[in-house]
Amino acid sequence: MLKFLARRLLLLLLSAVCITFVIFFLTNLQPNLRKVAKFEAGSRISDAEVTSWLQKNGYDRPFAVRYGEWLGVVPGWTGTNDEGAPVGRCIHAGADPASAPRYCGILQGDWGTSSVFKDSVGKIVATRLGLTGILMFWVMVTMVPISLAIGILAGMREGSRLDRALSTLSIASTSTPEYVSGVVLIVLFASSMTGLKWFKGSAASAMDGITFENFFLPVATIALYGIGYIARMTRASMTEVMTAQYIRTARLKGVSFRNVVLRHALRNALIAPFTVIMLQFPWLLNGVVITETLFNYKGFGWTLVQAAGNNDIQLLLGCSVCAVFVVLVTQLISDIGYAFLNPRIRIG
């Protein structure tokens, strides 16, 4: 088990390094840097001025070195500005150059400064993640029990009318991406067209205080797309378990159908959905970005869109690292959890 864990952790680290390198590469491509130069130094500057700005700010050095600096394994770049005062990656505006640390990358907890929000990236990402965390919490609270219930009810008696109805419902739910269900839900429940106006079409006010009225639609939008998928996986797992020998034995022994389902089948049927739910996180992230944009909820997804749209390289890198971290960690948890839950898998 320890060897398995160590191997998984090593692979995770390797993946993290590879992915952050690719993201760093894509965000630091020459045209992107030129755009940053124009954003910082004025949009009308000439090409020569752009080049000199990049040189002055340390962007002209080898790519691998800059990646190392950003990661915090290579000492931060230093130089002097026009007045001869020392400047550098690790010397923040207004800080004493002598006391600046030698290394300042994400490993040291220095995530850089966002050029759009004029704040430290670490702080922005932490606040936004908190807001998204609340959204995710409610999504999980609604999505997981509903989808498990649908899956188990459908898989309990394969081919029954209930199964067919619930399966069709799950298929319909997986064919409704967030930007469709969001639009449909807003039109039905928040527009003047039907005149229902039960809920609000924007979740902007939910950032100050969550009410049922302003938070129901975003949560429902994300949950709806996920429910179908998890329910189908649960159903598949449940139908497989229900045909197993020990279920037949239990039935022949005279155990009631209700008890067979609850005591014997359920536990074994829930192993597969656990993995699916864990692996659902990356997809939820997708949904979060769409839903937060649609409902104007200024969480992590909204921040990611803003960072990408405004070419805010540091913030985009910060968001990407968080997103990738979430994905990799959930993958790890699902692997370990699967091995832990399923006694048939022995890890040598």
Binding site: S15, P282, L285, S320
Partner: peptide, 26 residues
Amino acid sequence: FLANLVLAFPVILLFYLLVTPEIVET
């Protein structure tokens, strides 16, 4: 390993990083 690497990329992030005029320019 390569396939898992690509799968670990959040799709939306990949789109935002790849589908931009700057990337097309390169």
